[in-house]
Amino acid sequence: MIRSLVGAVAGLLLAMPACQAAALSFGIDDAPPPIVLDTTKPRLCTIGWLVADTATNDLFLARMQVAPALNEKPAGGSLPCPTEVPPRMAARALDVCLARATDAKTCVFGDMTRGFLDRPDVRNSAENGSRCASDLYRYIGIACWRSGDINVCNVGCGRTDLEARGTAQGRCESKHQKSCTITGSSEILAPQ
């Protein structure tokens, strides 16, 4: 009787969670705990500019995030972007190319005017046509035609990759009256 009672108590103790838990170690060699991203947090407004180095045809996406105001509310999962973009922001976007080019004169915005081929400099490229904001669009696209060694391009924004490239292609073909089949696109938001 006593033996069976001891057996039952031992069985009960073994079944308790405290007996099943493994000992925890806190050694300094332990890997850090995983970082859990808050994926529901709204992303910062990001304004993207496409800028190009005509000497190498390198194309850069300059991304500028904007810190929200204290009480700013997201709409549709993203924080609103400023309606006015000051020239210093656009200048900073062009700096992304200027810093990486051997000749400052070859850095231009990605949206090029009809006179670009005659005078391929920044004055024949449009800053406001070269930017897309993340509160309205997800992708920034570009479409170009090649004239000798230079890509002549226009920029478009879109909610999808195809829409952004299609818009850019439409703008390029109507502006330059050429077939603009060289295209590219990128998400405006930087990867998290």
């Binding site: 194309l59 810190a67 922001m89 990128s186």
Partner: peptide, 22 residues
């Protein structure tokens, strides 16, 4: 294949809300 332009992505900058500095 339609020619695809590679787009290079430098690290983003974060501006303060008044767009004065980054």
């Amino acid at each position: 294949p339609a020619p695809v332009l590679p787009i290079l992505t430098p690290p983003p900058a974060t501006w303060d809300h008044d767009l004065l500095s980054a």
